[in-house]
Amino acid sequence: MHEWGLAVGLVRVLQEEAWKSGAARIKEVRLRLGSLSGVSPEAFRFGFQAAARGTVIDPDALVIEEVTARSRCQDCGMVFDDRDGTAFCPNCGSVWKELVEGREMVTESFVMEEANV
């Protein structure tokens, strides 16, 4: 359940960002999670709801965009869906591949309410 520690970390980062941008409340947080990030979206959401309680962040603020992993074949160059990381190149069958995306766990942006509004 490493999601708990990561959720606490995100809340800490958001509090820092809220302070820097003068936010009174954070109403939405957009997170991109790759299918090979090793983070369960559901466990993460559960942790985030608990960690955000009592802060300027709305516990239900989290919007998770799940990114399907994609790999590029190192033999023929084809880019293909590789959700669980076990696919071979559907074009030439090569096992040599590099991941294009799918490991990310990035906080993209948040929507805030300004302190003086």
Partner: peptide
Amino acid sequence: KPSGREVPVGRSLL
């Protein structure tokens, strides 16, 4: 979509 200012972050959880 809530109203308010959108602030870019671009920081990894790790």
